[in-house]
Design a protein around this nucleic acid. Sequence first.
RNA 1: GGAGAAAUGGCAGAGUGGUCGAAUGCACCGGUCUUGAAAACCGGCGAGGGUCACACCUCCGGGGGUUCGAAUCCCUCUUUCUCCGCCA
Length: 423
Amino acid sequence: MLQVTQIREHKESFIAALKKRNFQAEELFEQVLQLDETRRATQTELDNTLAESNKLSKEIGMLFKSGEHEKANKVKAQTGSLKENSKKLSEKLQQVEEKINQILYTIPNVPHESVPAGISEDDNEEIFNEGDIPVLAEGSLPHWELAKKYDLINFDLGNKVTGAGFPVYKGKGARLQRALITYFLDKNIEAGYTEYQVPLMVNEDSGFGTGQLPDKEGQMYHVQNDDLYLIPTSEVPLTNMFRDDLLTEKDLPIRCTAFTPCFRREAGSYGAHVRGLNRLHQFDKVELVNLVKPEDSYETLDNMVAHVKNILRELKLPYRVLRLCGGDLGFTSALTYDFEVFSTAQDRWLEISSVSNFETFQANRLKVRYKNKEGKKELVHTLNGSSLALPRVLAGILENYQTENGIKIPEVLVPYTGFDMID
RNA sequence: GGAGAAAUGGCAGAGUGGUCGAAUGCACCGGUCUUGAAAACCGGCGAGGGUCACACCUCCGGGGGUUCGAAUCCCUCUUUCUCCGCCA
């Protein structure tokens, strides 16, 4: 969420920037600033009241000690109204703070200056593309057909065991997926990331920390008996590890990577676009999370983009990079680059990575700060990105690498798979 | 799952109702001494809010309560440890 102090200082420019998202902030900002006035005034009043009663309490203590009980009781009688008053004030304070937060929760992050205005994904800006789109032979198949033909993925079994959106990977399909995971992790480690294995379920605090709660509650699977949520991405546990932390300058940058399954309810998504591996309830993903000093965050974002490009280049997949427009930008992000790989058989682009800079938006809610050179506390900037989401990469490989004799394995993966052909 | 014990500053560890935001030791920072370092000695040293700076307020695992006053008493939750049971 945004910081009240920032809103106060940059009100006009924030309002203008948020318009790129088609978000009208003016009125909400006014409300927040007004409530914040009340908050501060109430705080001061409460502090003074408490100071007064602290003083009296001390006095009573000393009087009792010196045996002046009568006097002490007299002073005691004065404390009643103070107590009542401070109770009222602290209730009011709580209410006001609650109200402020309620509003702040509804305001998305301020888009970076480079973010184009726009309404939908059609307005995203393609900034890069690479890799030739292969011309496939007659009779080439979409990945779900290939998966069936070569017995790589069994959707029916998943249906039987669990339900739609939970495929079973089998044989070379399973091994190819495992190879990709290991390959991605190795690339990330090579780039300076530390590998983590994190819990797949998180508590409510973590859900709030990264902003899945309270709004996107429907996106996550909820284990009611224990009040835990299955993670929709490892960003949630990875980032929440640092919740409420006060870091030192030399702790930064923090670079984490993790492979986890991800669970998404994806309520309301049906149709041809969710066919096969396009959209699943459970899928694997390797994630990158960076916590950096504010002044370093955009360089870090560029590095992450370059890193993901490099992986796709090595895999020799045709892909493009989009700068998301305001309308398509995620709630918490200031600037996001999406990576899409071309699905030849489906003749469409599939999103396989999303790399974002959240600036302080996440850190503010999570209270992740560090002590800068001057010893002042500052919120860190957080960034994350996928490297990569497995199913669609798999889909891309199956479709783009299919030949009449079978599916070739990208060269860089052969050491990981132990085979170079699926046939 | 059952029974018991515990949770205090970076760490260790005092503190069972009243100048306790918290003794002491270690670590850390600054200084004296030294050619330099170590030792010794002197000083400083938790966090958040607030202020130009003070004042002042809040925080002793989390939440709630009793009291004029809570680290200290009560309730509750969480976590850790020990013992028993179960288990990949």
